[in-house]
Amino acid sequence: MADDWGMLLFRHLIDAGIEEAEAGELTDDALAEAAAAGVEPGSMYGPALTYAGALARTVRQATRHAAPPPRRRDAIVLRLRNVTKRYRRRQVLREVNLDLRAGEVAAVIGANGSGKSTLLNICAGLTRASSGTVQRTERIGYAPQHEGVAPLLTPAEHFRLFGAACRMNRKEAVSVGSQLAAQLGWRPRRNVVASHLSGGTRQKLNVVLSELNGPDLILLDEPYQGFDQDSYVDFWDQVFRWRNGGAGVLVVSHMLHDLDRVDHVLELQPVGES
């Protein structure tokens, strides 16, 4: 029993992006402590999966606090002026304005149908605004909620494909992609195609792809349930890590936590017929 639990804990820690040596040490400690107390590890720590999640979060947060990177705030990376969008007679966005600088986070909030995703697509250049102007930096990363990954390719194949688009060689693309994945507490398995990944993991893949070229502006959709059921907080950790690294980040937010830490809140109103 104890051995099974230990194996599970170790594997979940690895999956959560913990280095093998540290995962082994954490597992040994947990088993030794339970043995010393004379109880099954499962009854002492709860399920291996949850315990691994708690440990992994602690380790990640510690490394984050260890070296707070300097915060830059300088050039404007995205400027929206009176951006309006209408589909036939239905107005979706009305006169949206924003100045987002490098080293800032903007959260876009609003009810369903208020045009959040439309705005994200306009910022990415995939949808044309009906009027108004959009100016942005050249190198952007874009991670929409539902598109962007190819269901039949593995994560490594995605890294190579997207890496090629920004002139990285194959090896470099996979290595950078794997490092970025580890920061999100994800270690992609070989031979698992995107359609077999969970929703949260697919969004991690999306986010890694959006970041592969070291973009100055990152546009993304907050995953509905966080990356995993249990690690909602990690999504925002990552957002602030990008900000601290000097990128401008625009997040379409579906949950209303954490807004006190962002630099801009853009609240969209459903406009409807006009």
Partner: peptide, 16 residues
């Protein structure tokens, strides 16, 4: 205090 709460807290203090 359950072990699942205690030991991550101790690990956090150690990491800090």
């Amino acid at each position: 205090v359950p072990g699942g709460t205690l030991y991550p807290a101790l690990l956090r203090l150690e990491k800090q």
